[in-house]
């Protein structure tokens, strides 16, 4: 066995500079209608950039898993085309699938296999010669090394999830799909999982994750795609999305309740809550002139006594709920 390499060492193949511009996954007009007649995907167009973390958001049944399943080869597409790292997923499936790793949503495992064997099995299945040093590296990175001789049936849910990630990484993929990676995982493990994913990205792996936890996308993603009823309704940089749609609110608690908004404060975009105890000011935090200073002066001049103040940024969840409702 070799010495322990660190997580920062690339597990994926070295990226060629020329390939930087081309998207690592290109999806054109992808359709899927199941035999039952159910149309799960409607002409999906999507590009995933090399090295990014892309979060695919959507309610249950929106088509997230179908989309991933087609790219990974579990489901046959009805129409359209997917190119993964330069290879058509249907006509050149060997080369395409060799670059992809998949961590499925369900915790499925060969109960009586050991961690080491099941991860080695995955590497062989993907056509790679045995490489104990690589398997060791993957297991150590995922904190599974001590469990390598344990049977899968003896592991906790969180550990099993890690084993599935290890299996997906066993053949050194350039693209990793994580289908609901933290579904049913407790808060601590979820944070842990996020760190694992970030380390993977640092090592050069492109990551596509589906989730219906907004928090997860907000925490991790570089870009976000929203899918609803089989259609991609939005793809945006996370920051831009937050900037564009995210609004900020300033809340001022008043010492004495007001019956109505004083005239001196009218026309400033202020609202008074029903109890008359709180003034709410909505503004765009990205702009230079937020108008907060003037507002506070005006409030003071109006003779209102403020006992507390707080601000709130609207989350992706607010944005997302709005988007899906609109659609």
């Amino acid at each position: 066995m070799t010495d322990t390499p660190t997580a920062s060492q690339p597990t994926a193949a070295v990226k060629s500079p020329a390939a930087h511009e081309a998207p690592i996954i290109q999806i054109d007009g992808l359709d899927k209608t199941y035999a039952s007649g159910y149309q799960a995907l409607k002409s999906i167009d999507l590009e995933i950039q090399r090295g990014e973390i892309f979060a695919l958001l959507g309610p249950n049944g929106a088509g997230k898993t179908t989309l991933i399943s087609i790219i990974c080869g579990l489901v046959n597409p009805t129409g359209g085309r997917v190119i993964a790292d330069g290879h058509d997923i249907v006509h050149d499936y060997r080369a395409a699938r060799a670059t992809i790793g998949l961590v499925p949503q369900e915790l499925t495992s060969e109960a009586f296999e050991t961690v080491w064997n099941t991860v080695s099995f995955s590497r062989g299945l993907f056509g790679k010669p045995p490489d104990p040093a690589h398997i060791e590296r993957v297991l150590r990175d995922l904190a599974l090394w001590d469990k390598r001789n344990n049977k899968l049936i003896t592991l906790s849910g969180g550990m099993k999830r890690r084993v599935l990630i290890a299996k997906a990484l066993a053949h050194e993929p350039r693209i990793l799909f994580l289908d609901e990676p933290t579904a049913g995982v407790d808060v601590e493990l979820r944070r842990d999982m996020w760190n694992v994913v970030r380390r993977l990205r640092e090592s050069g792996v492109t990551i596509i994750l589906t989730t219906h936890y907004i928090e997860e996308a907000e925490e991790m993603a570089d870009r976000i795609g929203v899918i609803s009823h089989g259609e991609i309704i939005l793809v945006r940089e996370k920051q831009a999305l937050m900037r564009q749609l995210g609004r900020k609110e300033l809340m001022l608690q008043l010492a004495t309740p007001l019956a109505a908004l004083p005239e001196a404060l009218a026309g400033r975009g202020l609202t008074l809550d029903d109890a008359g105890r709180q003034l709410v000011y909505t503004y765009d935090a990205q702009q230079d002139a937020t108008g907060i200073a003037e507002l506070l002066r005006a409030v003071d001049a109006a003779g209102l006594e403020v006992t507390d103040l707080q601000t709130r940024q609207s989350s992706l969840e607010d944005i997302f709920v709005g988007l899906v409702k609109e659609h």
Partner: peptide, 14 residues
Amino acid sequence: FSGTIYELLSAPVS
């Protein structure tokens, strides 16, 4: 039955 077939289907095998 157990679901592990996903790996076989996603592998570069004919």
